[in-house]
């Protein structure tokens, strides 16, 4: 990474100054998730060589079912988005190491790995009414029986498209396109009033 890059990083929600507004306990807590790096992994799911390369690079099998998520060590995930598309995401502190391992495993074979770390803003929604808040704006079934912790789904929520990752029964991470993040936050706060939403510390 070039010099001055770390202090150059600015979240799409920075203008909201969430830190100064944090506090209070509500039925839902809203907050920006910890910064993550993300990569689009493309490739043929039905090609054993590709699946093997992914497994070699990540130490985890390629998730094949819709909504499936493979956990790769410390808070790194490989989320299936479609028949030939996955999202590899890890804490920013990983500094591209996981992606580099995967890239070298894929080298020479089929597939592509594209850095999209700036493409999404991660918003954390948690609390007893977290699912109720999301249900004001999305058509997917959020019942834990249908969408258990550990699963992910790409859907429309409110005014944006989001990748919804359920971390626990009452905790979600929403990966929303960066340019939509501010207005999606506004939407969350407006609908969150019903649940006495507060900004997480």
């Amino acid at each position: 990474m070039a010099d001055g890059a770390t202090e150059a990083r600015r979240s799409a929600l920075a203008g909201l100054d969430l830190g100064s507004r944090a506090g209070g306990a509500g039925g839902v807590l809203l907050g920006e998730g910890p910064p993550r790096e993300s990569f689009a992994l493309r490739g043929p799911a039905d090609d054993p060589a590709f699946a093997r390369a992914v497994e070699t690079g990540l130490g985890a099998g390629l998730p094949q079912q819709p909504g499936a998520v493979a956990e790769i060590g410390a808070d790194a995930l490989l989320i299936r988005l479609g028949p030939d598309e996955w999202r590899l995401t890890a804490p920013l502190s990983d500094d591209g190491r996981i992606a580099a391992r995967l890239a070298s495993a894929l080298a020479g074979g089929r597939g592509a790995l594209v850095n999209v770390s700036s493409a999404t803003t991660v918003i954390a929604v948690s609390g007893a009414h977290a699912a109720d808040l999301l249900a004001t704006g999305t058509g997917i079934d959020l019942d834990p029986a249908a969408f258990p912790p550990g699963r992910a789904a790409r859907t429309r929520i409110g005014n944006a498209q989001a990748l919804v990752h359920r971390k626990a029964e009452d905790a979600f991470e929403l990966h929303v396109p960066r340019s939509y993040a501010r207005s999606f936050w506004d939407w969350l706060e407006a609908r969150g009033r019903e649940f006495d939403a507060a900004v997480a510390l």
Binding site: G137, N159, A160, S179, Y180, R182, S183, D186, L188, E189
Partner: peptide, 18 residues
């Protein structure tokens, strides 16, 4: 409900919007 007022429309902002 949800179709008027705050948070209704998506507004896309570039990184330099602020």
């Amino acid at each position: 409900a949800g179709l008027i007022g705050e948070g209704r429309d998506a507004l896309r902002r570039t990184a330099a919007d602020d």
